[in-house]
Amino acid sequence: MELDTVKERAGPREFSPADDLPEEYRKAATRMIEFHANSEIMGAYLERPFIRQAPSIDRKLACSAKVQDEIGHGQLLYRAAESLGIKSREEMLDDLANGDGKFLNCFHYPMEDWVETPMIAFFVDGAAMRRQATLRRTSWEPYAHAMDKVCFEEGFHVKHGEDILRELMTGSRKEQQMTQEAFEEWWPRIIQFFGPTDDKSTHHDFAASVGLKQQSNDALRNAFLDQYIPKARKYGLEIPDEPRIRELDDGTYEVEEGDLDWDEFFTIAKNDYEPGLGQINGRKAAQEAVQWVRDTIEGDATAAGGHAPQAAD
């Protein structure tokens, strides 16, 4: 298929592994889905210590189930990416281990305390869910199908995160203060989740033109702020003064980009952010430590990773 034809046809769920797609499309889709899959894994990695640290049995169950779901989402997404015929799951996981795989900015920051868990589980997951909902209309059918299942499950994550936030913000004075401090630390990172404004985003144009990406960074950020600023206030969180956020007459928001640390953001995007290297390397060590098991059941591993790539056009 010619790229022009792809652009003409680029509707929701339009292309499947049965289509002979140009390499440009398949590479762009692989990059996008691999990033998404990696983010699920690194999000799970960040949250797993809190399964142990959860302050009740029910919370522990929910945290374990959530981390389990994220790994499940990774499984779905790596398959959707693999089906493009560019990279195998094993290659993607190896790249992630070696620090070459890219993933969401928020999952590069270390997380120390339980009061930080709703920053991820409510705000970051809420932001992710906003984006994922739009991706049910992506042009790569296996990706859209993965999104159906992810969106089905994700509501539990956001609700669980919100429930933890509610509990903390109706708890002791100390809990409220600690939560507010965590919120102030995480808020700029959460805003940066959506990346820089559209005119600075490098991959947006192509991904949008072939129907992979369904909404722009600006539109997603707006929708998120519109929904989650009132929620944060409802639970008694004070929105930090910076970054300055102006509500415009048309109900949308404008974030003062200069108030955000873009040097840090782009350092993170290159996997060079020092405090986050512990997470990348920690997961790498874990992956390497069980290499012997994968070798033992190699027959299986080859079958799973050995999806024949489509002929390059």
């Binding site: 894994i41 799970a44 990695y45 797993r48 399964i51 142990r52 522990k60 374990s64 981390v67 389990q68 790994i71 499940g72 990774g74 499984q75 790596y78 997961r283 874990a286 430590a289 069980v290 098991v293 994968r294 059941i297 591993a301």
Partner: peptide, 14 residues
């Protein structure tokens, strides 16, 4: 739960 995000494959992790 220590094996969560540390198991030999995504499927065995689940």
């Amino acid at each position: 739960t220590e094996w969560q995000v540390r198991a030999p494959s995504l499927e065995s992790d689940l």
